[in-house]
Design a protein around this nucleic acid. Structure first.
Lengths: 190, 190
DNA sequence: TCACGTTCATGACAGTTGTCATGGGTGACT
DNA sequence: AGTCACCCATGACAACTGTCATGAACGTGA
């Protein structure tokens, strides 16, 4: 519904045309190759494949298509990963509506569009201090999983899981694995 | 942005007119009293005042205005609370776009519009088994708070907090307070 | 008045979790 | 070959958490 509403919004602009719409991340590349748009507008939270992965794929298959990420949550980690995925613009959904068309025009003009506050926050945060395996373990500790469950899911011993979680807790500066999970999620370290 | 996009979408309908828009829950009632709309379309997650509270207020101050809740998360607990607040319709944002206008028309016609699956889920869940105080304690246990912190925040002893949390865990069927929190949130018991 | 549920508290116990020391195996870089 | 970071594991200890029994105070309704 949101997608179609945004399409309606953009159709008011004389210099723009919505040439394709898809509802799943794993259909983005195919649709882009068919419709050959100048700009692709992607959400991050999507079924099938998340928007950042879809952006990377799109960048690889169709380098000429510029990418704008439009997302609900202005998390600095999202911004960093969006830039790494080759996006040219990054805006959050609670910006004023006219910002969308402005951003698309600027991006088409070769400029990059990034919220300054978000960029500052992303730089201040730095990159993830978690090792890949620590990340896995923390991600498996979804709300309310026991250590034994995590160990079973990842085929690790319970002691190992405890060690990794302990490392995650220290690196995030949390006092819990629940808090570590929250912090890591906020920062896009997950 | 979403709000303006939806307004653009609705403006395509010949029989509808968007007479007012506000971005905060606590401005809903005032705007409705001024613009006197036939139908008010409310989100739940809003700054200032959540949409369900705003709906109840609107219901009280302007009983003639029918209310449609449009929200991102189709949680059964939201649906129940929406109905208790006097809403006539409840749709989620990932419905097809034409559903919005359809719903508004039906509601204006005096009908109630509810997703059948969601209604079934809401009825199956029943009402919250948590006592008010248990609810408070569980709500204070936001991601990563220690028992000592909760006790300090609510001016309770640690033992009491543990007792309440234990009750919450048993009533939700969880094995953790983290899981209990997640379950309670999903069901709208919070 | 009495039973009942809710709120708050204490204390004790078992289980889970977080921390630390330690060690072996692997691949990358110098 | 040596150093380093990472992966995996074990064991022990302290701290935190969840459970249970118990009891007092309070308001509500039969």
């Amino acid at each position: 519904m949101i997608r179609e509403a945004l399409a309606a919004l953009l159709s008011f602009e004389d210099d723009m045309e919505v040439v394709a719409q898809v509802g799943r991340g794993d259909e983005v590349a195919r649709a882009a190759l068919e419709a050959k748009p100048d700009v692709a507008l992607l959400d991050i939270e999507m079924p099938g494949m998340d928007g950042l992965t879809a952006a990377a794929e799109l960048r690889r298959l169709s380098p000429g298509t510029r990418i704008v990420i439009l997302t609900t949550f202005g998390r600095p980690g999202y911004l960093r990963r969006a830039m790494e995925s080759g996006a040219s613009g990054f805006i959050v959904k609670d910006s004023p509506a006219d910002k969308l068309a402005q951003t698309i025009r600027k991006v088409l003009d070769g400029q990059r569009v990034i919220d300054p506050d978000l960029a500052a926050a992303a730089l201040a945060e730095g990159t993830s201090p978690l090792t890949p395996r620590e990340r896995d373990v923390l991600a498996a500790a979804t709300e309310g999983a026991t250590i034994a469950e995590i160990a079973g899911k990842l085929y690790l011993s319970e002691g190992t899981v405890r060690n990794y979680l302990s490392a995650c807790i220290q690196k995030t500066g949390a006092r819990n694995r629940a808090e570590a999970l929250r912090i890591a999620r906020e920062r896009g370290w997950l």
